[in-house]
């Protein structure tokens, strides 16, 4: 297995449902870590609370599984106190953008040198499928039984606006592209934000006629719009469908960053 020795084999199989995309995102993140050649004892995985946030517990490094929404604040403390550590944060859409929204924008503003991988399954997975700030308008969940009536956050846009040095979005289907994006993020000093649209067949799929894993994958595949293609559409004056999300590298820049290893 790729990055086999990075897994805590004694904790597998993990708690994720069959077909949950979170496991794929861990694979891709560890593949990127291997590509960079990071050493295990210099790497720390940090997370908040949620299915996605269970990820650090399966990785054989120092790992900090914290409180709901606060992962980035904990990570800020770790990285500033010891810039020699490589810090990766796993988080979910609820963890990052609802309860942790304030820490999210401020971590981007500070541009603390770490990589944030958000598994955006458009739902609160762990608590059983309630609507989150990224639940698309009209989508069903246990708390949006008539379809969500709220606009959704675009997390990548938010990270760009708040100042992150690297921002990309892919899906848990686009594994090769995702590995490249995470690795590029890890190489970029400052905060790198990689949003991964991820299937939650159990709770998102079930309420939205996407119960089969293959249906959810098809949804991710057909709703992903390559950013270059989107720009072409815009240039040609064509409309970009509302329900699609852009994928690709969205920003790479060199704003001043904090906590960069000297």
């Amino acid at each position: 297995m790729t990055a086999e020795e990075w897994y805590r084999a004694d904790r597998l199989p993990h708690i994720y449902c069959a077909g949950c995309g979170n496991g794929t995102v861990i694979n891709c993140t560890l593949a990127a870590v291997e590509e960079l050649g990071w050493r295990r004892e210099e790497t720390v995985f940090i997370s908040g609370i949620g299915c996605s946030s269970r990820a650090p517990g399966y990785i054989l490094t120092d790992s900090l599984h914290t409180t709901h929404g606060r992962a980035l604040a904990f990570a800020t403390g770790v990285k500033l106190a010891n810039p020699g550590l490589n810090v990766v944060v796993f988080t979910g859409d609820g963890d990052l953008a609802a309860i942790g929204g304030n820490h999210f924008i401020h971590a981007c503003r500070r541009n603390v040198d770490m990589t944030v991988v958000c598994m955006n399954n458009m739902i609160y997975g762990m608590t059983g499928g309630q609507g989150s700030p990224t639940t698309p308008p009209g989508a069903f969940s246990t708390t949006t039984p008539y379809g969500s009536g709220e606009p959704a956050f675009d997390l990548a846009e938010l990270a760009i606006a708040a100042g992150a040095n690297y921002v990309a979005r892919w899906t848990s289907y686009h594994v090769k592209e995702l590995v490249k994006a995470i690795a590029a993020g890890m190489r970029t000093p400052g905060l790198s934000f990689v949003e991964v649209m991820t299937q939650c067949p159990t709770n998102y799929g079930r309420h939205n006629r996407l119960r089969r894993v293959s249906d959810m994958i098809e949804y991710l595949r057909t709703h992903a719009l390559l950013v270059q293609k989107k720009e072409r559409l815009v240039q040609e004056g064509k409309t970009v469908p509302d329900e699609m999300f852009t994928v690709g590298e969205l920003v790479r820049r060199n704003r001043p960053a904090m906590g960069v290893r000297r």
């Binding site: 297995m1 897994y7 597998l12 994720y16 077909g19 496991g23 794929t24 694979n27 891709c28 090769k176």
Partner: peptide, 12 residues
């Protein structure tokens, strides 16, 4: 591809 996408680290 199969190994990378397998969410359960089951393929080798």
């Amino acid at each position: 591809m199969c190994q990378m996408i397998c969410p359960d680290q089951a393929i080798r």
